[in-house]
Design a protein around this nucleic acid. Structure first.
Lengths: 210, 210
DNA sequence: TTCCTTAAGTGACTTATGTCATAGATAGCA
DNA sequence: TGCTATCTATGACATAAGTCACTTAAGGAA
C-alpha cells in the first residue's frame, strides 16, 4: 500500500535511511475532495507530507470566512504542521483538500529525532518553511499591489501553463480562488473576451491570447 | 565592543559554545534610522540577528512602492536572511531600520556548520521562520478581513501596550504603517476623538479609552 | 512678536469592488 | 423532446478607501 507512492521520487535528496524511517513510521491517509485536513486552532500532532492530490491553505476569520492563500502539491509538506516537539502548537490556518488526496502523517515525536539524525531532514524542514513563506509573500503582493484584472490575468496564465489553453473552471471557482465574487470575475472575463483574449463556454473557457 | 550587547540574554537557550562562535564569527554593524539593511533582489550572504533598534520589513512592488509587513525587534532574526548555503538566494523583501539599529552578521558559511553542530541552532532557525510566517499571516488577516477603522484600533491598542497611553506618532506615520493615507487616518482618528477614545495633539495623541 | 514649516481637518470627487436582483443560456437528464 | 439545475450576463446601487485641493492650527526659529 505504502509502496504505491514513491517517496524517493516525491521527496528527492533525502538520506536512504530516512526514507526507510518514513516508510516505517509514516501513516498514509486518504481524504476526500472538500474535506478538512487541519482546522484552525487544532493541536498539531503530526507533520503532513502530501503524496497525491492538491491541498489548499486558507486563513480563517473569527466569523468563519475563508481566505485562500496557496496550494500544496505532491512532494511538498505543510509547514505549519512541522512543529518542534518541545512545544505544543496549534494551527493558525485551515487546510482543505481540493481533490481527493493522500498524505503521510509523521508523528511529531520523530521531528526531533530526525532533526538530530538526518542532515537532509533539517534542510527539508527549512526549505519547506521558506517555500511557504514565499507563498504568503506572493499572496500579500497580490492583494497589496494588484487589481483584480491583473490578478485574474496572472491566475489564468498560471492555469494555462499547468493545464493547457482549455481551462475547465467555472467563474465561481475562479472567484473563490481569488477571494472575489462571481459577478466580478464574469465581468472581467467578458472584457477579456471582447479583447479577444479568450472564448467563454459554459464550465470552461479557451485562452487564445498569444 | 561586541560585549556591550548580551547575546546570551537576547538569544536565550543556545549552547554556550554557540555563543562563543557567534562572538568569534559574527560581525557587529550599525545602521542609521531610515537606512536599508537588505534590498529586494540582493544576494544574501549573511544571517542577520538584531541586537538593538527596530527593523521594518516591507514587500516591494516592481514600481518601487513599499508595503509594510512586520517589525523585527532585538533578540529576533531576519528569517529571509537565513539561507542554507548550498544555494544562493536573493532577498524577496526590503528591510529598513526604523530607528538607529545594531545587528550581527553571520556569514552564510557557518549556517551549515552550526546546523550540524548545534541542536539549539536549528531550533532557533525553525522558530524564526515560524515566527515570521505568523507575522505574514497576521498581515494577511488584517488586509483580507479588517477595515481600516478596526486595523487602526488594533494598531493603537498595540502601541498603547508597548509605549503607554501617550503616543508620539503623526497621522502620516500611522498611515504609512497601515499602508493607508494620512487623510484617511485623520478622519478615523477624528471620529475616535468624537467617541471620546482619544485626544489629538500635534505630533501625538492621548489614548483615554478604558 | 512675526514668520514659516509642518501637521491636521475637511469637503468634493473618483474608483474598484462587492452586492442585489433579475434575466438569459446551456447541458444533461427524464 | 422538454425541464430543471446551474452557469453566465448585466444593470443598478452601496461602500470603503484613496486622491485633490484648500484651509486651519501649532510650534519653533528669527
Amino acid at each position: 500500500m505504502q509502496e504505491q507512492y514513491n517517496i524517493r521520487q516525491l521527496f528527492p535528496g533525502l538520506e536512504e535511511k530516512l526514507y526507510q524511517e518514513m516508510e516505517t513510521h509514516g501513516e498514509i491517509r486518504h481524504i476526500a475532495a472538500g474535506d478538512t485536513l487541519l482546522r484552525k486552532g487544532q493541536t498539531i500532532r503530526s507533520t503532513m507530507l502530501i503524496l497525491d492530490g492538491i491541498v489548499k491553505l486558507y486563513q480563517e476569520d473569527e466569523d468563519g470566512s475563508e481566505f485562500f492563500m496557496y496550494d500544496i502539491e505532491p512532494g511538498e509538506a505543510c509547514a505549519v504542521s512541522m512543529v518542534c516537539s518541545y512545544r505544543q502548537e496549534n494551527s493558525q490556518v485551515l487546510a482543505k483538500a481540493l481533490t481527493d488526496a493522500t498524505y503521510m502523517m509523521i508523528p511529531n515525536q520523530y521531528m526531533d529525532e530526525w532533526l538530530a539524525k538526518y542532515k537532509s531532514w533539517h534542510y527539508f524542514v527549512i526549505r519547506t518553511w521558506r517555500t511557504r513563506y514565499e507563498g504568503l509573500l506572493n499572496t500579500i503582493n497580490d492583494i497589496a499591489f494588484k487589481n483584480m484584472d491583473e490578478r485574474l490575468l496572472l491566475y489564468i496564465e498560471g492555469q494555462v501553463k499547468k493545464m493547457g489553453r482549455h481551462i475547465k473552471l467555472t467563474h465561481q471557482e475562479i472567484a473563490t480562488d481569488l477571494n472575489s465574487s462571481r459577478e466580478v470575475i464574469s465581468r472581467l472575463m467578458k472584457k477579456m473576451e471582447k479583447n479577444g483574449w479568450l472564448i467563454i463556454n459554459r464550465n470552461s473557457f479557451e485562452w487564445i491570447k498569444p
